[in-house]
Each structure stands twice: as structure tokens, then as C-alpha cells.
Amino acid sequence: MFGTGLLKGLGVTLKHALDTFEDDRDSVPDRYRGSLDLGNNRRVIQQPIDQEGLLTIQYPEEKRLLPERFRYIPMLIWDSEKQEDRCTACGICAKVCPPQCIWIVRDSDENGKPVTRCSEFYIDAAVCMSCSFCVEFCPFDAIKMNHDYELAVYDRYPQLVYDMEELTVPLEYYAALWPTQYEEEQARRKEEEEQKRKQEEEKAAKAAARAAAKSAAAATDSAAAQAAPKRSAAELQALAKERAAQRQAQAADAGGSDDDAAAAKKARMEELKRRAQERARQRKEENGQ
């Protein structure tokens, strides 16, 4: 009969409307099941997989609960125990980066000899495609994906070119964002370190015997290094100076001196730590439920 198809379809629409409406009338609607109430109308919602009816998340008051593997923009890890950056400036992340949005400058010591530490590290977040290859191929667990996606700024440049300071987060922050992966990694790292320590103990015994002979050679070595510095040392220094001047100018713009900048960075670290703890608490609560 003409019209039965329409009527059937309308039945489906009615069911959807009722599902959604009915749910809305509950004091705690179905879709808030398993969500975290942060107070002040703010919530982190995880949509139950068996939820019926339409779900609208009232962003920005309400947000989705991000899965652990969520990837957005990379961050650099500051190892809080050892008080050092994990990055060794090996450059693998810059090499595998598909849009080539990572720039790394390897640091050098006072003799112009390259060291395993970077002096500058930039990620152009406007170009980054969030593929997470840098994380996948980093041999030192030094770069990880951040979950922070609210990065909107008014200008693309230079605000979206992140430098080392902006990229660096403490290890605890990472541990809170990626708990499962962090656990696995820690276990693996501990094992490796244990092995390394044993090897080094063996080595140290051997090395001690040769130390005396070596010290004489080392003196001549360093003299040679000073006589023939690396080609780009001067350029590097010039660049570093320029960059330092730029930073100072920026800091001056922001109405602060070097001390202020350091204080700001410290404050930011504290803030990040606080956020990490908050997140850890949230996760605990969620697991408790």
C-alpha cells in the first residue's frame, strides 16, 4: 500500500526521538555513564558503546575522554629523576618526519666538539601531521605524543613553531597520559640499564689499567681539536647568539628578564606536573568505577 514505507520510516524517527528525549529526562542521562564530573558543569565524557539515542557533547564545558594512544603534537621528555633531557640529538625523528617539520641543532662543547644533546629543537606545529613516526622510531623514548589539542592561536608564525622550552614536559606528565605504555617502557628501560651497569663494571676494571697511558694521549688530542675546530663552529656560535638575542627580545617584549623567563619556565613545569597529577587522579577514579 502506498505510504507504508513512509510510515515505517517515521516509526524509526519516533523511536530515535524517544530514545534521546527519554534519556535527557533522567537526572543522570545514560550518556554520562562512566564520565567524569569535574564540577562546575565540566565533564569528561566517554560514550558508552551501547548507548541509544543521539549524543551531543557540549564542548568546551564537556569533552571526550581521550584514549591513551591519542596523538596530536609531539612533546619532549625531561627525565625528572636524572634531571636531563632524554633527547640525544641523534636526529632520527627529523629524518623520518614525513612533512619535515622538525629542526634539530646538535649542541657542541666549548671545543666545538658535538655532544649528545641538542641546543635547539623546533617543531612547526602548523606543518606537523600527527603521524607519530618520530615517536615510533626514537631509540631513547625521548619524544612522545601530547594529548593537548587546544592549541589555537591568532598567528601561525611564530606562535606555532614550538621551541624546546615549549615542547619539553616532565616525565610524570607523560606517565599520566600514557600509563600503559609508560609501564612497559619503564620495565624495559630498567632491564637495559641493569645490563649496561654490569657491562660497565667489567669495562671499568679493564679501563683503569689503561688510564695512565691514555691521559697523555688525551692532552695531545684536545690540543689538536683546538687547532682544527669543526667547520661550522663559528656559524653555530653566531646562530646561537642570534637566537639568544631573539629570545631576550621576546622576553623583553613580554616585559621580563632572564630571571623572569626561568621563573616562567619553572612555573610552567609546575603547572604541567599539576595537570599530570590531576589526570592521574581522573584515571584512577575512572578505573575505580
Binding site: A89, G91, A94, K95, V96, C97, P98, Q100, I102, W103, I104, V105, R106, P114, S119, E120, Y122, D124, Y157, P158, V161, S232, E235, L236, L239
Partner: peptide, 14 residues
């Protein structure tokens, strides 16, 4: 790729 300016000498230009 990889472009040489990315690592390690810092001859980058945005």
C-alpha cells in the same frame, strides 16, 4: 627527503 637542513648543523630557515 630527509632534507639536509633539518639536522644537525642548524642551517634551517622557516
Amino acid at each position: 627527503k630527509p632534507f639536509r637542513s633539518r639536522h644537525p648543523k642548524g642551517e634551517y630557515a622557516f
